[in-house]
Deep mutational scan, measured.
Amino acid sequence: LETFPLDVLVNTAAEDLPRGVDPSRKENYLSDEDFKAVFGMTRSAFANLPLWKQQNLKKEKGLF
């Protein structure tokens, strides 16, 4: 999966995202380093959170 810089994904409308980016899964296009910096946890820890908590975190970080 291709990764993009944080500033390309945060608070970006679906139509302005790079081609192929799923707007409902912007976090998947962050590098592992950016993911950890944004969410303060690994991808696996994030995946283990309840869906509502994942969505709330994504909203807080501008990735929803």
Rank of each mutant, 00 (worst) to 15 (best):
L1E: 09
L1D: 10
L1A: 12
L1Q: 12
L1I: 14
L1V: 14
E2Q: 15
E2R: 10
E2N: 12
T3H: 11
T3F: 15
T3C: 08
T3A: 07
T3Y: 15
F4V: 06
F4T: 03
F4L: 08
F4H: 06
F4G: 03
F4Q: 04
P5M: 04
P5Q: 05
P5G: 06
L6W: 07
L6G: 02
L6P: 06
L6D: 01
L6F: 11
D7L: 09
D7R: 08
D7A: 14
V8T: 07
V8R: 10
L9D: 02
L9A: 02
L9M: 04
V10P: 01
V10S: 06
V10R: 10
V10G: 03
N11G: 10
N11E: 06
N11Y: 07
N11Q: 08
N11R: 05
N11A: 08
N11M: 08
T12R: 06
T12Y: 07
T12D: 05
T12G: 08
A13P: 14
A13T: 10
A13I: 09
A14H: 11
A14C: 14
A14K: 10
A14D: 15
E15W: 06
E15C: 09
E15Q: 09
D16C: 14
D16E: 12
D16M: 05
D16H: 09
D16K: 04
D16V: 02
L17T: 04
L17A: 04
L17K: 01
L17H: 04
L17G: 04
P18T: 01
P18D: 06
R19M: 15
R19E: 15
G20A: 07
G20V: 08
V21F: 06
V21D: 05
D22Y: 02
D22N: 07
D22L: 03
P23D: 07
P23W: 03
S24T: 15
S24L: 15
R25Y: 10
R25E: 05
R25T: 07
R25K: 14
R25M: 10
K26V: 15
K26A: 05
K26T: 08
K26S: 03
K26Q: 03
K26Y: 03
K26E: 03
E27A: 01
E27Y: 03
E27G: 01
E27P: 03
N28H: 11
Y29E: 02
Y29P: 02
Y29G: 02
Y29S: 07
Y29F: 07
Y29I: 02
L30D: 00
L30R: 01
L30Y: 01
L30I: 08
L30P: 01
S31H: 06
S31Q: 04
D32K: 07
D32W: 06
D32Q: 09
E33N: 11
E33W: 08
E33Q: 12
E33F: 11
E33I: 10
E33S: 13
D34R: 01
D34K: 03
D34L: 05
F35I: 03
F35C: 00
F35Q: 00
F35V: 01
K36C: 14
K36L: 13
K36V: 14
K36G: 13
K36S: 14
A37M: 13
A37K: 13
V38T: 12
V38Q: 03
F39S: 00
F39D: 00
F39V: 02
F39A: 00
F39G: 00
G40I: 05
G40E: 15
G40M: 13
M41V: 06
M41D: 00
T42D: 15
T42S: 12
T42M: 11
T42P: 11
T42G: 12
T42A: 11
R43L: 06
R43I: 06
R43S: 06
R43C: 02
S44W: 11
S44K: 11
S44P: 11
S44C: 10
A45S: 11
A45I: 12
A45W: 08
F46D: 00
F46C: 00
F46Q: 00
F46Y: 08
F46R: 00
N48S: 14
N48D: 13
L49S: 03
L49I: 06
P50I: 02
P50E: 08
P50N: 04
P50Y: 02
L51C: 10
L51N: 10
L51F: 12
L51E: 06
W52I: 11
W52D: 11
W52G: 09
K53P: 01
K53L: 15
K53G: 08
K53Y: 12
Q54A: 06
Q54M: 05
Q54H: 00
Q54N: 00
Q54S: 03
Q54V: 04
Q55Y: 08
Q55G: 07
Q55M: 12
Q55N: 15
Q55L: 13
Q55V: 13
Q55K: 09
N56F: 09
N56P: 00
N56Q: 13
N56T: 12
N56W: 10
L57E: 05
L57Y: 06
L57R: 04
K58H: 01
K58I: 04
K58G: 01
K59A: 10
K59M: 14
K59C: 09
K59V: 12
K59N: 07
K59S: 10
E60Q: 12
E60S: 10
K61V: 15
K61C: 10
K61R: 10
K61Q: 12
G62V: 01
G62Y: 05
G62I: 01
G62W: 04
L63W: 04
L63N: 02
L63R: 02
L63D: 02
L63K: 01
L63E: 01
F64Q: 14
F64A: 15
F64C: 14
F64E: 12
